[in-house]
């Protein structure tokens, strides 16, 4: 196998990991702090993508895409507070109830998207600045994929600083280890949960914005992303950002090389890695231990 092929496949795996990290980090945060397994997380991703279709149809070019990157996650984050409110009575209850409730939201949001945007397949053009190929070792590679990798790196840094250097991050980390104690020391835990849920939803929506110009936007995006996002957080460990980053890299890169070398078994290998990690460390590579 030639070196250029390996480099291209690696970069392709990294760009896949980029989207996965952005989406899965939100899922992981919400689980870590709220202990809610949110099946509707992929729905925020899909909403993000469809809203990008609308925003970029109003404002063209790079400006429209930049507006979508900033505004869409905020809008979805704000809207997600309704979902969070509906889940409040289920915190601390068994996961099955939460699964059912968030599954209900998945169906509701899928219908909402169907009804607002219809079934027509949508296409979002890549902004000229980041469209088209660039030459890497004599091979064409999409500029957009490099852009995705860049955004994920910036976002990972921002999230890391947020978690380690801000009051909100401190509270989230405290909630991950013991929400009751956090309430006793005077932190408004329900308010914190709302903010964490909104942050998670916003991250999923940002993933949707970024994925939109690199795929076809259509119904069903919600389901396809949620399965892989769960694989990522299960490998990395629910509740751990660094774990999620590792999980995304593993899933993205293993998948890319799986397709290159054993095409029939690529997906199986990804899930075999997941099962292997679960057997070895049931709470994921860096996960918090279930209380």
């Amino acid at each position: 196998m030639e070196l250029d092929t390996i480099v291209i496949q690696l970069l392709t795996g990294l760009s896949r990991a980029a989207i996965l990290f952005i989406v899965a980090s939100g899922l992981s945060l919400v689980f870590g702090a709220l202990r809610v397994v949110n099946i509707a997380h992929g729905s925020f991703f899909m909403l993000g993508a469809f809203l990008t279709v609308t925003v970029t149809s109003w404002i063209g070019g790079l400006a429209g895409f930049a507006v979508a990157m900033l505004a869409v996650p905020l809008v979805v984050a704000a809207g997600s507070t309704v979902v969070e409110f509906s889940l409040r009575r289920l915190y601390g209850r068994e996961h099955l109830l939460q699964l059912l409730a968030t599954f209900a939201w998945l169906l509701v949001i899928a219908d909402l998207v169907h009804w607002l945007w219809g079934t027509q397949l949508r296409f979002v053009a890549q902004p000229t600045l980041i469209a088209g190929p660039v030459s890497i070792m004599g091979r064409a590679f999409p500029k957009y994929s490099l852009f995705l990798i860049g955004v994920a790196l910036v976002l990972a840094t921002v999230l890391f600083v947020l978690m380690r250097r801000t009051g909100l991050g401190r509270d989230i980390r405290a909630a991950v280890s013991d929400p009751e104690m956090l309430g006793m020391v005077g932190v408004n835990v329900p308010g914190l949960f709302t903010r964490v849920f909104a942050l998670g939803a916003g991250l999923a929506a940002l993933g949707g914005v970024l994925a939109a110009p690199n795929t076809s936007v259509g119904l069903g995006m919600d389901i396809s992303i949620i399965i892989e996002a769960f694989a990522v957080v299960i490998i990395g460990g629910l509740g751990s950002l660094v774990g999620t980053a590792i999980g995304a890299l593993v899933v993205g890169i293993v998948f890319a090389f799986g397709i290159l070398w054993v095409p029939d078994a690529a997906l199986v290998i990804v899930f075999a890695v997941m099962v292997g990690v679960l057997l070895w460390r049931p709470s994921g590579l860096l996960g918090v231990v279930e209380r």
């Binding site: 496949q9 760009s15 795929t215 998948f255 095409p263």
Partner: peptide
């Protein structure tokens, strides 16, 4: 690729290889 696969890039680069 799976019927719901939304990112075909790894498949395309593998084809080209």
């Amino acid at each position: 690729p799976a019927l719901d696969e939304a990112d075909l890039q790894p498949f395309i680069t593998a084809l080209l290889a």
